[in-house]
C-alpha cells in the first residue's frame, strides 16, 4: 500500500501526510482569520458611529462632526455612470469573443489586451485619466466647443470614465464566463430553426446568460466603489458644500427637477477614508468618522459581493438542474 518497508519510514510517510494537510489547512484558516481580523474592529468601532444622522447628514464643523451623505451620494453616482459606460462595451466585447471569433488570432489579440488591461496598476489609471481624459480630451473639447473650462477640469464624468476603463476587464471576463455557461445545444436548436447568428445571440444566448452578466456587473460595481487611486486626480474632492446636482425648472412641475451634474467634482467614500486618515487637520480626533466611513464602504462592497456570490451559485445550480 505504501512505499515503506519498515515501520520507521511508514511513520515518516504518515508525518508528511499530516504536515501537508495541516500546512494547507492552516493557510485557508489564516484567510478566514485575516478577514475576521480586518472586519471585527472596523465593524465594532464603526457600528458605534453609524447612525441614521451619520448616513443622512453633511460634514460639519470643518469635517470634525456630522455625516457622510455627500460621500455616499458621490460613490453611488460615480459607480452608476461607470457601469453605464463599461457594461455595453464589455458585453459587446464578450459576445464578439465567445459567439463570433472564439479562438481565432483576433480573439487571442483582444484577450491579451484585456488581460494586460487587468494587470495595470490602478494608480496608472489615475495618471491616464488626468493626462488623457482631462488634459487631452477635455481641454480640446473646450477649445472646439468654446465652453471655457467646462470639460478640461476634474469632474464626475472623467472619474467615471477612468473607472469604466479599469473595470472593463471584470465585465468582459465575467460576461464571457456567463455566455460560455449557456449550453451549445441551445444555439444549435436556434440555428436549426433558421435563426441567424445575431438572432441566436440576442434572443437565446444573451437571454439565458442574463443572470450571469448581472452578477459580473455587480462585481464590477463593487470593484469600482472600492477603488481610490484612479479618482485621486480625476474628480474626487475633500469637501464640497453641495451635492453634484443641478436643478432644472420644468414647466407644470411644482418643484425644481434635480439632475446629476457630471461636470461637478464630488465627494467619495473611499477617497474620504484616505484623506481623513492621512491628511485631515486632526487625524486622531476624527478617527470615529474614519471608522464610520470605512464601515459604510465595507458593508456596501460586502453586500455587493455577497449578492454576486449568492446569485452565481444559485444560477450555476439552476443551470445544472436544467441540463439534467
Amino acid at each position: 500500500m505504501t512505499f515503506s518497508h519498515n515501520s520507521r519510514s511508514r511513520r515518516s510517510v504518515r508525518l508528511l501526510e499530516w504536515a501537508f494537510v495541516i500546512a494547507a489547512g492552516f493557510s485557508m484558516a489564516l484567510v478566514v482569520l485575516l478577514i475576521a481580523w480586518i472586519f471585527v474592529p472596523i465593524l465594532y468601532y464603526g457600528a458605534k458611529v453609524v447612525t441614521p444622522s451619520f448616513l443622512f447628514e453633511s460634514p460639519k464643523k470643518g469635517m470634525t462632526a456630522g455625516g457622510i451623505l455627500p460621500a455616499i451620494f458621490g460613490t453611488l453616482s460615480l459607480v452608476t455612470l461607470m457601469i453605464l459606460a463599461a457594461l455595453p462595451v464589455g458585453i459587446a466585447t464578450a459576445v464578439y469573443l465567445v459567439e463570433y471569433v472564439q479562438d481565432s488570432p483576433i480573439a487571442r489579440v483582444i484577450r491579451a489586451g484585456v488581460n494586460n488591461l487587468a494587470g495595470i496598476p490602478s494608480i496608472v489609471f489615475g495618471l491616464f485619466g488626468l493626462g488623457f481624459f482631462i488634459l487631452f480630451v477635455g481641454r480640446h473639447l473646450d477649445q472646439v466647443l468654446q465652453t471655457g473650462m467646462l470639460f478640461g477640469k476634474p469632474a464626475l464624468l472623467w472619474a467615471a470614465m477612468t473607472l469604466a476603463v479599469l473595470v472593463l476587464p471584470v465585465v468582459i471576463v465575467s460576461t464571457e464566463e456567463a455566455l460560455r455557461a449557456v449550453p451549445w445545444s441551445y444555439r444549435e436548436a436556434a440555428y436549426a430553426l433558421g435563426a441567424t447568428r445575431w438572432q441566436t445571440t440576442s434572443r437565446v444566448v444573451l437571454l439565458q446568460a442574463r443572470p450571469g452578466i448581472l452578477t459580473g456587473a455587480i462585481l464590477a460595481v463593487s470593484r469600482g466603489a472600492g477603488e481610490t487611486a484612479p479618482i485621486l486626480f480625476t474628480g474626487a474632492a475633500y469637501f464640497l458644500p453641495k451635492l453634484p446636482v443641478v436643478y432644472f425648472n420644468v414647466p407644470l412641475l411644482p418643484f425644481q427637477l434635480p439632475i446629476l451634474n457630471p461636470f461637478d467634482q464630488f465627494m467619495e467614500l473611499a477617497y474620504h477614508i484616505y484623506i481623513m486618515a492621512t491628511q485631515s487637520i486632526n487625524v486622531q480626533e476624527t478617527r470615529p468618522i474614519q471608522y464610520g466611513t470605512t464601515f459604510v464602504l465595507l458593508v456596501m462592497t460586502f453586500l455587493f459581493n455577497l449578492t454576486a456570490i449568492v446569485m452565481r451559485s444559485f444560477y450555476r445550480r439552476q443551470l445544472k438542474a436544467s441540463l439534467q
Binding site: V31, I273, Y274, L297
Partner: peptide, 13 residues
C-alpha cells in the same frame, strides 16, 4: 470576500 475588500479599507486598517 478577501479579494473584495477595498484596498483603501485594508490600508486604513
Amino acid at each position: 470576500l478577501l479579494a473584495g475588500i477595498p484596498t483603501v479599507v485594508i490600508g486604513f486598517f
